[in-house]
Amino acid sequence: MTTAAAAEADILFSPFELGYLRLPNRIVMAPLTRSRATKDTLAPNDLNAEYYAQRASAGLIISEATQITQEGQGYVWTPGIYSEAQVEGWRKVTNAVHAEGGLIFIQLWHVGRVSHVSLQPGGGAPVAPSAIPAKTQTFLASGRADVSTPRALRLDEIPRIIAEYKTAAENAKRAGFDGVEIHGANGYLIDQFLKDGTNKRTDSYGGPIENRIRFALEVTDAVLSVWDKARVGIRLSPVSPANDALDSDPAKVFFPLVEALSRRGLAYIHVIEGATGGPRDIAPFDFVGLHKAFRGAYIANNAYTRELAIETLQAGRADLIAFGKLFISNPDLVERLRENAPLNAPHLETFYGGDALGYTDYPALGDA
């Protein structure tokens, strides 16, 4: 690497002040569902702790999406944060990450309609803002399956779900996390309230923009009643069609939402630019403007390479860069990016479910 190229790359590996936390670099490990929680309790285990500890050189780890209740679960063997066994399991993970000098936030998750009756309490229908089935699939023990048709949440049920987010935030604090990320992206429950393709309500949570952003802001306020604002972020996906959630005019929704979040002083917004795991240019959207509308940090996500990450940081279009799949196959991704070294290719067939194979056995640079 030339001296000039090394100097340009320095920004990716420079420290960053995120609220009260000093991140050692600007590389964020994005949330990655791996479906390897303990099967009977959905609690994290020793293998999960090893996996996260291997990746603790990231400036910040954001945990895999973690359901706040059984109702919030949409995929088999994903972890929760609503039982004592789950809190204890996550404490193993946070202790392991901290022992390696890392920082870790939990991502709080309710999937809404992206679920299956076999995963729901009593085999009931998944819940959603409106009773509109999603044209997507989930992952069950038997393999992939179409998601089930949801039922619309009653108005009197919404406070209960908001209270469950608060309890989950309290449990996350007991489990030793450094902060919380609210999952408001990818067509899950919060995103379903935000977008007019999934929210056809006519009450105070549907219709006008101020109504559609209400649920997201009430969840945020519930989490902020537990955690300092400097330790709370939210993930958003304005134009992603993930899980069949679409809006006719995303800018009219997401700019007011982000401005309201900015007034609350959140530490960051974590934004999927384009289609989740797909094209960055799927639809026009002013992500630079969204960054400017928010006073806190902006984490950019989606198909970032080393080169694009450096260019984006240098141009001031983001403060931090999130990498997803590259962290699956490269536990030492930070070192590999620093050295501009070759990257391990991920094994797609081991992404969901299983054991250490394709999970904790990817080699680091120094391995033979």
Results as ranks from 00 to 15, higher is better:
Pro250Tyr: 03
Ser240Met: 04
Ile310Asp: 00
Asn199Glu: 13
Asp10Ala: 15
Ala168Asp: 06
Ser142Thr: 15
Tyr268Ile: 08
Lys292Met: 11
Glu273Trp: 03
His347Tyr: 05
Ala37Ile: 06
Tyr205Val: 13
Glu88Ser: 14
Asp247Phe: 00
Pro129Tyr: 01
Thr167Ser: 13
Ala152Trp: 03
Ala99Gly: 14
Ser248Cys: 09
Glu88Tyr: 02
Leu153Trp: 05
Ala185Cys: 11
Ala251Thr: 12
Ser118Gly: 09
Leu326Ala: 14
Tyr304Asp: 12
Tyr75Asn: 12
Ser83Gln: 13
Ala131Glu: 12
Ser262His: 09
Pro256His: 02
Asn340Ser: 15
Asn171His: 14
Lys173Glu: 13
Ser57Arg: 07
Ile104Arg: 01
Glu218Tyr: 05
Lys92Val: 08
Thr167Asp: 11
Val117Met: 14
Gly265Met: 11
Val147Ala: 07
Ile269Cys: 08
Gly124Asn: 12
Val271Arg: 00
Leu108Phe: 02
Ile269Thr: 07
Val28Phe: 02
Pro15Val: 03
Gly123Glu: 12
Ile272Gly: 01
Glu311Phe: 04
Ser248Thr: 15
Ala267Asn: 06
Asn95Ser: 14
Thr38Lys: 04
Ala56Asp: 12
Asn25Ala: 08
Tyr51Asp: 05
Met29Thr: 00
His183Pro: 11
Ala58His: 01
Gly179Pro: 13
Arg212Trp: 02
Ala56Val: 09
Ala4Ile: 15
Ala364Tyr: 06
Leu153Asp: 10
Leu261Thr: 08
Thr202Tyr: 06
Leu365Lys: 07
Ala267Met: 06
Leu155Gln: 13
Ala315Val: 07
Leu236Glu: 06
Ala4Pro: 04
Pro133Asn: 12
Gly80Lys: 04
Ser225Met: 05
Ala356Ser: 15
Phe254Glu: 08
Val97Pro: 08
Val28Glu: 02
Glu210Ser: 12
Leu108Gly: 08
Val28Trp: 01
Met29His: 03
Ala341Met: 10
Leu32Met: 15
Lys166Ser: 11
Ala185Asp: 07
Arg336Tyr: 00
Asp281Arg: 07
Asp355Arg: 09
Arg151Leu: 09
Tyr359Val: 11
Ile190Thr: 13
Gly89Arg: 04
Trp227Glu: 04
Ala175Leu: 06
Ala364Gly: 07
Gly176Asp: 12
Glu100Thr: 05
Gly358Gln: 01
Glu335Trp: 01
Ala58Trp: 00
Pro331Ser: 10
Glu349Asp: 15
Leu47Phe: 05
Val258Ile: 09
Lys39Leu: 14
Gly184Phe: 03
Ala368Ser: 14
Ser63Trp: 00
Lys325Asp: 13
Pro363Tyr: 05
Gly274Cys: 03
Gly102Gln: 08
Ala163Leu: 08
Ala309Asn: 02
Tyr304Trp: 09
Leu333Ser: 03
Pro279Phe: 01
Arg235His: 03
Ala175His: 01
Leu266Thr: 13
Asn48Glu: 15
Asp355Ala: 14
Thr220Ile: 02
Leu42Glu: 12
Ala65Glu: 13
Glu84Arg: 15
Arg91Asp: 12
Phe215Trp: 01
Leu140Val: 09
Ala293His: 10
Arg151Lys: 14
Phe16Trp: 04
Phe285Ile: 10
Leu155Ile: 13
Gly19Lys: 06
Glu210Ala: 11
Glu164Tyr: 02
